[in-house]
Each structure stands twice: as structure tokens, then as C-alpha cells.
């Protein structure tokens, strides 16, 4: 009998990764359904109603099966190697973010000492993947989509990083678990509500800039379907397209989960007596709420123009983030 003891870590890691991939797929299925329902009801429609009986709950599964058995088309003039590689890169970049999401105190892939920084770093992979997809498709829409996406993601990485620095400064650590632990005991201890109004502004800036990071409306210029067909994944079909799709919904989850972690108290309940409900439920609940707000915004606001997009980033988010950072820094120093 082989002693399992030394391999326990390894086995747990593998199980965790498989679990995360499963979770991501399930979440994407749920989110597509939710997205269509939210869109429908905001526009006084019903959304999918037929498949599966109750409010069309089987619709995403039907869609997924359709995607999986679809023909995989690679354009003749495409750069085949890069075309095949790009979706995996984007998917890996999105999946890597899950490694440091603290679903609960012990339910975390790896409590990295540089957790927040790590997330910002691995998202760079997504930018490269998108650029690769856009170029390899050999299609002008893909190309424009990729360029816009990269420009937008690089620009908005700065306000995102700056506003994430504020809770990091308040907690004095970049480890996700410690940041959450510092917010224990009721919602008034959450970082959004401490140092009002600075952290609230930081939260708002983070949320909006993260919308641009994941190419969601109103910052969905990279895939603006009315002008660019589908942006960088115009030429993709079947399973490769599904990869992009998964990555997009994965990204939505990751940015919302980070917001929930560093601003909204992670796995802690808003009131201490509610702590009997297990942490992961609170964590996923808060994240799902933020995802819902993302969808809500998408069906409220029209798409921005490129110059407006850049104006919002460089002239509004950036100065406010800097001022915020200085003031919160002062607050931290004065508080000792």
C-alpha cells in the first residue's frame, strides 16, 4: 500500500482544479440563462420559456450541446496555429484568476501572499490571447476588436489596480484571506463602508473599470455587434467559441468575486448572527449579485464611443483614484 500522505496536497490540488473548472462551466451556464432572463424582463419580455419547462431552465444546456457538436470552422486564410492557440490562452488567463479566490477561509486554491497583485498580473494573458485571436482570424473586424480590446484593457488596468490598492493599504496585506479576515463582524466593517466616502468611490471606480476589463457593456466596444459583428471572435465557431464564452463569463465572475472579497467582506455575513450560513454561500451570493448588477447595467446603458471610453478612464477615474489613494494613505498613516 502506497502511503498517500505525501501526495495529499497534490491530490487536493487536482481535485480543486477540476472542481473549479466544473464550477466555472456551471456558472457560465447559469449566467447565460440569467443574462437572457434579465434582458427579457428589463425589456418587459419573458426570455427563454420553452426548453425544460420551468422558465426555460434547460436552455443553456441545449445551447451548450449545440455548441459542442457544431462544426469547427477555421478560415482558409487564418493563421492556423495562432488561431487554435488563442482561445486556450484567453481561457487559461481567466481560469488562473480563480486560483486565489477565497470561497471560504479554507476553500481557496492558494492563499498567495501577493493575491491581489497576482490576479492583476494573470489578466495580462487575456490581453495577449485576444490580440492573438484578432490577428490570427485575418479579418478586419476581429482585428479592430482585438486592438480596441487591448487598448481598453491596458488603460483600465490602471484604475483597477489603483482602486484595489486602497483596501490593500487599509489591510496592510495583499493576501486575499487576510484582507477578508480584516473585515469580519458585520457589514459596517466592510471596506466599502470604512473611510467613507473614499473607499466607496474606490469600489465604484473598481466596479466600472472592471466592466471595461471584461469587455462588458457599456464598455463592450471590442465586441460591438452592431459594428464589428463579434469583435475578436467573429471567425470562431463551435468549441473554440465556447472557450471564449466561458472565459468571458469566468472573467465576469472573477472581477465580481474580487470586488466581493476586498470591498464587501468576502465570505462574512453582513450581520454577525447570520454567520451560521456557511461562508461560500455568502461569497457566491455577493459575487452573483455583482454579476447581476453587471447585467443590469448592460441592459440599461448604451455603448460608449472610443474617445468617451478613454476620457472616462484617463480624465475621471485616474485622477479620482490618485486622490483617493493619497487620502486613504493619509488616513492609514494618521490612524497609525
Amino acid at each position: 500500500m502506497i502511503a498517500l500522505e505525501p501526495y495529499l496536497d497534490l491530490i487536493i490540488s487536482v481535485v480543486y482544479v477540476v472542481g473549479i473548472v466544473l464550477f466555472l462551466s456551471l456558472f457560465a451556464l447559469f449566467a447565460t440563462w440569467l443574462e437572457r432572463k434579465v434582458a427579457g424582463h428589463i425589456q418587459d419580455r419573458l426570455g427563454p420559456m420553452e426548453t425544460g419547462g420551468w422558465h426555460g431552465w434547460l436552455q443553456p444546456i441545449a445551447d451548450a450541446i449545440k455548441l459542442l457538436i457544431k462544426e469547427d470552422i477555421i478560415p482558409a486564410a487564418a493563421d492556423k496555429k495562432l488561431f487554435k492557440l488563442a482561445p486556450y490562452l484567453v481561457f487559461i488567463g481567466s481560469l488562473a484568476g480563480f486560483a486565489v479566490l477565497p470561497f471560504a477561509a479554507n476553500l481557496i486554491g492558494s492563499d498567495l501572499n501577493i493575491g491581489v497583485y497576482y490576479v492583476i498580473a494573470v489578466t495580462s494573458l487575456v490581453v495577449i490571447g485576444i490580440l492573438m485571436a484578432g490577428w490570427a482570424s485575418n479579418n478586419k473586424w476581429s482585428m479592430y476588436g482585438a486592438m480596441r480590446s487591448a487598448a481598453q484593457m491596458i488603460s483600465y488596468e490602471i484604475p483597477v489596480a489603483l482602486s484595489l490598492l486602497i483596501p490593500v493599504m487599509m489591510a496592510g496585506t495583499m493576501s486575499m484571506v487576510e484582507i477578508v479576515d480584516n473585515q469580519a463582524g458585520g457589514f459596517w466593517n466592510w471596506y466599502v463602508f470604512r473611510t467613507m466616502p473614499f473607499s466607496l468611490i474606490a469600489f465604484v471606480i473598481y466596479f466600472w473599470a472592471s466592466l471595461a476589463e471584461v469587455n462588458r457593456a457599456p464598455f463592450d466596444l471590442p465586441e460591438a455587434e452592431s459594428e464589428l459583428v463579434a469583435g475578436y471572435f467573429t471567425e470562431y465557431s463551435g468549441i473554440r467559441w465556447a472557450m471564449f464564452f466561458l472565459a468571458e463569463y469566468g472573467d465576469m465572475f472573477v472581477v465580481s468575486a474580487i470586488a466581493a472579497t476586498v470591498f464587501l467582506g468576502g465570505w462574512y455575513a453582513p450581520f454577525p448572527f447570520l454567520d451560521i450560513i456557511p461562508g461560500p454561500i455568502w461569497f457566491i451570493g455577493k459575487t452573483a449579485f455583482l454579476v447581476f448588477v453587471q447585467m443590469w447595467l448592460r441592459w440599461t446603458l448604451p455603448r460608449l464611443r472610443v474617445d468617451q471610453l478613454m476620457y472616462v478612464c484617463w480624465k475621471i477615474f485616474l485622477p479620482f483614484s490618485f486622490a483617493n489613494l493619497l487620502l486613504v494613505g493619509l488616513w492609514v498613516v494618521l490612524k497609525g
Binding site: 489578466t123 495580462s124 494573458l125 487591448a150
Partner: peptide, 17 residues
């Protein structure tokens, strides 16, 4: 992490651009 952020996210993107 800095390597990823600066070189992949910044410099490589600039090169590709």
C-alpha cells in the same frame, strides 16, 4: 507576478501593437 504584469501585460502588448 511583476514579470507577468510588466513584460507580458505591458511591453509585449506594446510590441504586438
Amino acid at each position: 507576478a511583476s514579470q507577468m504584469l510588466v513584460y507580458v501585460g505591458g511591453i509585449l502588448t506594446l510590441i504586438i501593437f
